[in-house]
Design a protein around this nucleic acid. Structure first.
Lengths: 151, 151
DNA sequence: CCATATCGTCAGTGTTGCTGACGATCGGAA
DNA sequence: TTCCGATCGTCAGCAACACTGACGATATGG
């Protein structure tokens, strides 16, 4: 990922009209802000992703989590290690497939998500997108969702 | 950056409604595709950025380029080294500030941009955003531009 | 003329994610 | 059942990467 702390100056000229750069910039800013907030709880974007996925989908194998976040399975090992050490998730052998773990959110993990993480990221989102009209935000959401669906 | 080749499965549930994840996913996909295309010319997203910035703004110092792309000045040294070796940009001492270089696009660099890179990235953008109605694309562009401006 | 700051450079460093192998386990075919 | 290929999690090694902190050269303000 990028260095934080540093601000990206908006690019002028023809670039400003390219969806490509605009999208990249917006995503980078949002991600940077998010990382900054999450760092207070010693978490990364990636860790937050794991918790969110588990909250949404219930217990999953390490590999399945990685698949949904574009994280390599070998990388997931350590990510889960850390999360488990902190008591946010728990490993249990999957009864149906004993090669795999069944990773689940602990109460502690769910509490962190609900009480701290979700509010914090909500705030960031609010701040970054705050300048948009409600109508535009809904539209943005709809268009992006359509983009994600059409893959 | 992320590993390429790997596909990100769309996340289901509450996440799908969060602009945050949607934006991140869209940007990641676009970036990955772009990197894949640029690799044919042995270039990275970052290199392309340098060329585009120079095309848009004219000669700049290394540090100024880095500032606009969120790239550290020490990293820029090597980026420019490679681009210069390939004859795409040229270093000249800035007459007004002899500490700094004045990096400019060569004819060769401009030609590559116009003949190869721009068409290629256009195509990617077309493919990724192709599923959207023209009206939605314009709206997306407008909203993102507004977002970039309001910083 | 001196102090401080900036530009580009470079060696060293720490982090990061991937590659490729491993044992264990699963699933299907013979 | 037995066998074979594929998959799960793990780990050591590796390669890429960007950042840190220092340096000489230069600029700028007192």
């Amino acid at each position: 990922m990028e260095g934080d702390g540093r601000l990206a100056a908006p690019v002028s000229g023809p670039l400003a009209t390219s969806v490509c750069w605009l999208l990249g910039d917006a995503a980078r800013e949002l991600t940077q802000e998010l990382e900054r907030v999450l760092r207070k709880d010693d978490l990364r974007w990636r860790d937050y992703g794991v918790l969110v996925v588990l909250e949404a989908a219930g217990p999953l194998s390490q590999q399945e989590i990685g698949r949904r976040l574009s994280v390599d399975r070998s990388t997931m090992v350590h990510v889960i290690d850390v999360l488990e050490e902190r008591g946010l998730v728990a490993r249990a052998r999957d009864a149906a497939d004993r090669r795999a773990y069944s990773i689940r959110l602990t109460d502690s993990g769910r509490a962190l998500l609900v009480d701290v993480l979700h509010p914090a990221t909500e705030a960031v989102q609010e701040r970054v997108l705050g300048g948009l009209a409600a109508e535009d935000r809904m539209h943005l959401n709809r268009v992006l969702a359509q983009l994600a669906a059409g893959r």
